[in-house]
Design a protein around this nucleic acid. Sequence first.
RNA 1: GCCGAUGUGUCGGAACUGGCAGACGAGACAGACUCAAAAUCUGUUGUCAGCAAUGGCGUGUGGGUUCGAGUCCCACCAUCGGCACCA
Length: 803
Amino acid sequence: MEYKFNDIEKKWQAHWYQEETFKCEKDKTKPKYYVLVEFPYPSGQGLHVGHPRSYTALDIVARKKRMDGYNVLYPIGWDAFGLPTENYAIKNKIHPKKVTRDNIANFKRQLQSLGFSFDWSKEINTTDPEYYKWTQWIFLQLFKKGLAYKQEMPINWCTSCKVGLANEEVVNGVCERCGSEVVQRNKSQWMLKITEYAGRLIDDLADTDYIEKVKIQQKNWIGRSEGAEVDFAVKDTEKSIRVYTTRPDTLFGATYVVLSPEHALVQELQDKIRNWDAVSAYVQEAARKSEFERTELNKDKTGVPLEGVYAVNPVNGREVPVWISDYVLTTYGTGAIMAVPAHDSRDFDFAKKFGLPIIEVVSGGENVQEEAYTDVSDGIMVNSGFLDGMRVKDAIAAMIDFLEEKGIGKRKINYKLRDWVFSRQRYWGEPIPLVWCEKCGWVPVPEDQLPLTLPEVDNYEPTDTGESPLAKMEEWVNTTCPHCGGAARRETDTMPQWAGSSWYFLRYIDPHNDKALADPEEINYWLPVDWYNGGMEHTTLHLLYSRFWYKFLYDIGVVPNKEPYQKRTSHGMILGENNEKMSKSRGNVVNPDEIVEQYGADTFRTYEMFIGAFDQSTPWSMNGLKGCYRFIERVWNLQNLLTDGEGYSAEMEKSMHKAIKKVGEDIERMKFNTAIATLMALVNEFNALGKITKEELKTFLMLFNPIAPHVTEEMWQMNGFAGEIAQQNWPAYDAAKTVDDEVEIVLQVNGKVRDRAMVPANLGREELVAYVQEQGLMDTLTEGKTIVKLIGVPGKLVNAVVK
RNA sequence: GCCGAUGUGUCGGAACUGGCAGACGAGACAGACUCAAAAUCUGUUGUCAGCAAUGGCGUGUGGGUUCGAGUCCCACCAUCGGCACCA
């Protein structure tokens, strides 16, 4: 019988879709399991082979969990707002709505051709007004709680495309698309106060099961640091300079103070500054430089002293010079630092260049006149008054106590995390539901008027001014103030792509609800997500943003717990056959449609899971794929080996129980490749024996079903087994039957393998050694030598240490 | 510079808490079938020496701990990913 995968797969896919086989159940008494994958951005290129890696893996988990008796939610949808669609639409003069519709249709066809067990009744689309109504609703709640505010922010402006660019679109300071220069332009932007949640975003990670490197990335991105703020008085004035430092222990070694060029004090001290022309020129120069230039040219430090201005070190009364330099950032800490060149390499570079004094206050390094000693682990304080002789760690604590006691400084925690720039000057995004009224200020669109839909425009090309295309839509922009009824104008910026994806997993729970973002009862049942898998490229921003929104929703009582995702895993990339990242320009892209057409979805799924360790990047291989096809054909041909007989045959019994255990455990641990290897070994055994019993076939089909669902269901049906595999319970194994009665152990002499022997499996450490001695198994190996020690490892080996 | 990951046959990769390195797959070689090729099936396949039984050497490099190290510790090298003047 021929293995006609195309017919088989189409048949089962249609069956699953029509019967809604994988629709999650209403029954809330069953334990639930929420399996989530990152929903795709429906691009014009269609599905990438990387998508199915994640989707297949969690499809296997979802199918297995259903067989384990869970009520499983495994949904999918479309993250469809965003730049590529808008750019494509502009270029080809097709409305983004239509582009999106077509792309989604294509993606849906592709996903369905792979047989994923999605609950299609939960499908969502972030560009659907029914959906973004609630994205806008969440924004309004943030606004009402004071977590959304407007601020002048520099945006990346491409001088040639005349368009504001996202940070991701700026590569090495030039526009990713046209290669021309990108400059900074100031624009008033909506911001979200994610920084208010910085501490909780770190602390609550402790309650999750994220893989460790994801936690580390989240923490690094938020960048918490502990230190102190210290006030330096400005000599002969009432003013003072507040600096932030993580090394208050080195305060005695501060030999100058540096302000960022934008620091307010620079202007305030103009009268005292004797070299104002030079200072002013430096400030202007810094303003002209783009962020890129300021950070890229970081090797060579620049700066200007504020002549005539001195700061007073509060611990020793020493007067130190004050400089401005763009190596000090306005946006972090207080925008001012105390410089300790002996123990900070940046300050050291600056001091060397401008001939500023370097005073050692921590001993233990080399000559601090040659190199900064920055190690905090084991230095001893010197030249530091009351700190002398202390270790650095103790000195930090002692200094902070001292500062707080004297009222000249205080403990302070800072974060690198900055507030989230939430505005985009684009058409294809959620409109921000706010109205500007001269009398009332920013007024929210009343909730019962949501969704505020995107108007149909003729021309969604960006404008020269950097304003959103919506700004030209006079009849849409001009409105009345919901508060006072007077003339008012709508906000014309739209939300970033991150918005819709920051809460989508909530909407899956109840996607058609028009009273709430989801029914609270359903929310309480399904949340949190039990297992979320996605790419490493989303482990910082997407994860952070969605955790932030979730915490906010927790604070206003919409969700029941603090963290959205209980467990987060990440998959590795699939590279091209040449070991490079797949891309059109490299010509190494694999098209899933062609693979499905030529080898079938089951082969494709099996190969993607067999390709290598799930969390590692691996190159694609056509030969590897063919190997998986051959394997499935051998599975298909097992039917020809069927023999009579009840249960498992004597020869296969142990192997069957072991395989059930191994495959089940491997799926939980995401070791899909070794699960498949186990199944391959099982098939090899059947072939070597030349027979398989009905029961063995039945079990095998159930074990292989989550990975290759079509061919296994077909064989299940063909062989007259009752029902469908999707409705079966996962096979059970008998632990006693997974261990052999006799095992082969290794006999070693001085750690080298010399022989093997069969011994009873149940022997303990001493029993094993005794058994080997009694049986004289090692006599010939140790003849003529003195046995110093015999080491036994049950089930593994006996090692003789001889002289 | 900092953070993270990885380094094992010809290739993708196995080896759960230290205990038979190379499972499983691919490739290659040989054989069967065939007029022939493809497909399929069978066998061999880390490396060196040997006719052989067998033995030596082998998990990026150099040291160490241990009866025993791919696995643990120290130092280094290489590749990939992320961040980057965050005081």
